[in-house]
Structures are given as C-alpha cells and as structure tokens.
Amino acid sequence: MKRINIDPSKCVGCRICEITCSFHHFGVFSHELSNCNIDSEDALGNFTPLICIQCEERSCVHSCPVEALSIDPVTGAVRCDHDKCIKCGLCIKACDHKGIGFIMLDGEDRIAVCDLCGGDPKCVKRCFIKAITFEDDDAVCDKENSL
C-alpha cells in the first residue's frame, strides 16, 4: 500500500497543496478548508507540510471514544464518520504528526483528515518540489529508518 511521505527540507512554502486540496474537496480555493496545512516560519525559511501520513500507530483512530474514525481498507486513509463524531478533539491531541485537525465548514467545526483523494492525492500531483510524495510503504519505511 502507498503512503504520504513528507520532506520538509524541500518545502518552499508555496501553499499550492492547501488550495488544491480545498478545491478538490469543497470547490473553493481556501487554505482554511484544507486537509493539509503548511506550518510556516518565514523569517527562518522553514516550512513544514502538515498532513496525515497514514502512520503505523494510527493513534487518532485508537483515541476516538465513539469509533468515528476508521481506516479505509482500499486506500489505507483515515476516514471520519461525521455523523458519529462528537468533535471532542482527542484525535487531534493523539496525533504526533499534526496530520488531523478541525476546519470550519458552514459555521460548524468538522474533523479534516487526508482521504488520499480516493487513492490519487491531488496535492502530491501539484507539489513540483516533491516535498509531499506518495510512495510504497516499504520505500517510506526505508527512508524513516535511514533518518
């Protein structure tokens, strides 16, 4: 299975991933309505893409008290059943990667997490600099181990 891989050292902070995501999911270019975020420290030239990386731990899923979160058996993406979600935010606290968060949709908070666009993530296609890639699990693990 493929996973999202992030290389912050490559990110130029252009935010194309954010508004590509919002357009694909909500039909609007908005960095607020996005499943990914760039953590920007422009004074020091540091930019970090924050997006679910389909980690092994899946702390968010385990932390959910109402089983609103699950794993898509086909893509491996975290899914949220918004009807079940009680917006407690425990999943956000549980995630070490800052890959899950709230967005404000139609005046209401809602959990936002990468759904891999059904297996073909649009942000990855747009990331010219290859700070966000979509790779086989083994390749990602090798990179993580080498760090």
């Binding site: 130029v12 252009c14 030239g45 747009r126 010219f128 600099i129």
Partner: peptide, 17 residues
C-alpha cells in the same frame, strides 16, 4: 543558499534563503 522559498502558489520557488 540554504533553501528555496516560494511565493503563493508558484511552482518555481526562485526566491532564496
């Protein structure tokens, strides 16, 4: 040059840091 910086939605990122 430590890294590249990009303007809003630019694939080039010609700006330096």
């Amino acid at each position: 040059v430590e890294r590249r910086m990009g303007c809003y939605c630019c694939p080039v990122g010609c700006h330096r840091y």
